[in-house]
Amino acid sequence: MIADLLLVAAMLIVALASMLARQAFTAVALFIAYGLLLTLAWVRLAAVDVAMTEAAIGAGLSGVLLLGAVRRLATQASPPPEQPPGPAMTLLIALGCAALAAALGAVVLLLPNPAPSLAAPVAANLPATDLGNPVTGVLMSFRALDTLLESAVVLLAVVCVWALTPEGGWGGVPGAAQPVQRDGPLALLARALPPLGIVIAMHILWVGADAPGGKFQAAAILAAMWLLPWMAGLVTPPPIAARWLRWTIAIGPVVFIAIGLAGAVIEGAFLAYPPGWAKPLILIIEFILTASIAVALALLVIGTPDTAQRR
């Protein structure tokens, strides 16, 4: 309990400081610390799968994405600042937000006891999926539709980011040019870390069927392992016109939908797996989806193609 109080206090202070920070860099550094603390909070809430995702996406990829933006904006003339709300308005907003937080806190205390839960039905039906990890069971079987749609959302987000390409940049290499560092500390890390990271990602993906872990966590790690050499200028992303790149990010959702439709034909329900086939099919989907999502996540961090950089 003391540990929880400490954790909560640290989280709130860091969040508050990040929200109030004057400099964008400070705000993002604090945000990364916030992600680290949230990871620990998820462990305390017995949500280890979520903790892994938070570590990989919340603290890792989101932080790096925001840092990249800070870096790019620093080289550009800062846009004319929008008029901030006046002191009276700020106070009003603060009171409103405090009231919402207070109401929300009160409601958290008023949630029914014992809490309604689907833990028992999940436990009862998990054997039908041959999986050991209940969260993977929910993601890949009971609520597989959400996972499928989410993979489509991630793909769509890449389309959206590309759709913002300025005139003359279409089809080119995504992202800003990175300064090339053939040696030095970044290059060292960029060469040494990826092999290790790929092994770890495969491990996380593999254990995900029966223990905490799975495709999103693995995909986020793989994305980071591609982004690292990119940041060091050691690899150039393929141009967005590249057909294979587009197929790579699309193949995961396509296979997922195809297997879902096969279930509709064979088993009479979309995303139903034939008895005994659940686990192998889920593993196939997860494996292909990991590749697609990893590339898509990395492309989301890399960003929009630049006019300056057509190679």
Partner: peptide, 11 residues
């Protein structure tokens, strides 16, 4: 995962 991604975020 934290060790990997923390290295990534730090650089």
């Amino acid at each position: 995962i934290l060790a990997l991604l923390a290295a990534f975020a730090s650089v």
